[in-house]
Write a protein that binds this DNA or RNA. Structure first.
Lengths: 167, 167
DNA sequence: AAACACCGTTCACCACGGCGAAACAGTCGC
DNA sequence: GCGACTGTTTCGCCGTGGTGAACGGTGTTT
């Protein structure tokens, strides 16, 4: 989603509309204006004149927040996993597993559930699921997603996190 | 909650800790430093020298956001302890203990109550509870939570406090 | 004050099982 | 036939639950 630059307080009516729309926005203040008081995470401000990289950094931060507020991956009919405007192709088995995980995005899905969805006629072997999960992990890493293991409970798909654990 | 001012990148290790704790923080950059890339709503930055009212405005905004964030931990059915948007996986015994402590978050829970919940058929050893509590402590530290001991009364779970305990 | 019992923390160790990962092999489609 | 997909075996790490022991703080008794 694009971040809108707003001169403030000159373009106040436009700002109100952006707030109502929930659009990410960066207010550009001149030397004298008092800073705005909004606590909205999708709003930021900077005082002009400003270093160009500072403006870009604040725009990037707002864009990043706007994106992460709608983390809705999707597996389409062709076995493509789409996320944040990018996609990767999945094999049939991986597609079935990914679809199951996406249905409960951010929550744990049991191995049993995954196995039933990927192999309706019975799981080949215990390790088959592990191996396919390993392959799925490697693919979705390119999209900034990850599958975390919750021991003896199942797997959980989410946006990749920098820190360990927590997971 | 108080907003912490951090010189950056000089005090990077301190910043990491604040991020882990979920404390609101304002980074103070000198003229040359590149802006940080965190999208966290509880983090903001400003370049020095800066107008004093600008600093105050950003501090106030961070404080306002920190207030509206509610610290409500939760143990879901899959044994995941969720807090402030992050989570850690708990083993079955730890999950039972954590669930009991979360039910009375911020209040004391007796050892007896905890033992009954974790081992309905009788505690294995007196030491078992202590050991599992130690392991639970280490896990939830990653979420900025802690379990405090109230001698001869039980345990109390709460958001981690800096160091000077208010008892 | 010293001795003592009590309470809690932390560590080392063990057995067990879940899971990861590589390597290999068979199958299918272009 | 080549490459992608799938299934299997094997090996080994590490999470988990339990136990004993060392250590230390606290309040009570003598």
């Amino acid at each position: 989603m694009d971040v809108v630059l707003v001169r403030w307080p000159e373009e106040d009516t436009r700002l109100q509309q952006l707030r109502d729309d929930g659009s990410p926005r960066l207010l550009l203040l001149n030397r004298e204006s008092a800073p705005p008081e909004s606590a909205d995470c999708l709003e930021d401000w900077i005082r002009l004149p400003a270093d160009d990289r500072d403006v870009r950094a604040r725009v990037a931060r707002l864009a990043s927040r706007a994106e992460t507020e709608q983390p809705a991956p999707q597996v389409d009919r062709d076995g493509l996993l789409r996320y944040r405007g990018r996609w990767v192709a999945l094999s049939p088995v991986e597609g079935a597993l990914a679809a199951t995980l996406v249905d409960r995005f951010g929550a744990v899905v049991g191995r049993e559930t995954l196995a039933r969805r990927a192999w309706p006629d019975g799981t080949p072997t215990r390790n088959a699921l592990d191996v396919h999960m390993l392959r799925l992990r490697r693919r979705i890493a390119a999209l900034g997603m990850e599958v975390r293991t919750v021991r003896s409970r199942g797997y959980l798909m989410q946006a990749a996190q920098a820190r360990a654990d927590a997971q």
